[in-house]
Design a protein around this nucleic acid. Structure first.
Lengths: 159, 159
DNA sequence: ATAAGATTGTTGCATTTGCAACATGTATTT
DNA sequence: AAATACATGTTGCAAATGCAACAATCTTAT
């Protein structure tokens, strides 16, 4: 390829890894929503992800949780309102760095529904993972992490 | 690892490739929004992606465009309303399989703003691509495509 | 030939989401 | 000590999005 051809080459955003990631993520979301419609009417896919995050990270305050799920504080609070009303999480007042915070924890009934849903999704999850070798899965995961880290250095997520 | 340990191992959704894709996609979106806030007030990031798609696929009807961008027909029509009002695309009535369809095409002023924005984003785009080797980029792209194809076989996107 | 169904696009409505503003309490500065 | 800035969470509002219903048109079935 000559220098001139390189200069003339127009890069399309829709050919970029970013956009491809966005499209792929939409596929994943569509799959998740379909699974939920089939097996669960108690919580939404978003609430499920939040519940799973809470179960993996005990004793988080709302803002730290918001940072993990990449939603703003307002939205995080609202999802927690819903989960708390349904009895799947509890919030307790605490202090962190001498500041009043609301600590989030999963309840026993939250554990129950989380495990139940996780088990139901296990077959599909395994099916999805089986399309890759273990090495390829690790490579994909590492690549995605690399993308996130690179973006972190450019844009402050400000949550 | 013994059989018992394998059985007891709980897979968390938030550790899955799906969720990792969702998080990574959110990072990409945040970056895109930041870039837009800095350089462009005429169109939104979503409109930009639609405009780019239209420029890559001339003469699409709205539904086929909707399938490409993975939005429903209603939303696609509304984005096109906005782009048309701004003069960046035109719609013309045509027939496809003996059916009346609205064909979408980019206008000269649409080309102008698309090229301008693409050039402005070029540095960041190159920066993002440079974190990977060309081979790794191809592998990532292939993996994402594999994910989309696998999901396509499970869930009908129904657009 | 008439009725039922399918395709394309639009409209209305409800949900989700994010941003800005606010309330409350703490740390820092002057 | 008072004022300013910061951190955490909530509320209000607007934009984005998807789903269901509808209109118009064409195809297929009975």
């Amino acid at each position: 390829m000559t220098t001139k051809e390189k200069e003339l080459k127009i890069m399309h955003y829709t050919d970029s890894p970013s956009y491809e990631l966005e499209l792929t993520s939409k596929y994943c979301k569509a799959l998740l929503i379909k699974l939920f419609n089939q097996v669960c009417s108690e919580i939404s896919p978003e609430e499920f992800a939040v519940l799973d995050t809470v179960s993996c990270h005990r004793g988080l305050c709302q803002r730290d949780l918001a940072k993990l799920i990449l939603r703003d504080r307002a939205n995080t609070g609202r999802v927690l309102d819903s989960l708390e009303k349904k009895g799947f999480i509890v919030r307790s007042n605490d202090t962190k760095n001498n500041r009043l915070v609301r600590i989030v924890n999963i309840t026993p009934s939250g554990e129950v529904i989380l495990n139940e849903l996780t088990l139901r999704f296990q077959p599909i999850h395994e099916k999805m993972c089986k399309i890759f070798s273990k090495e390829d899965l690790l490579i994909l995961s590492a690549s995605l992490k690399k993308v996130r880290e690179a973006i972190s250095q450019i844009v402050d997520m400000q949550i």
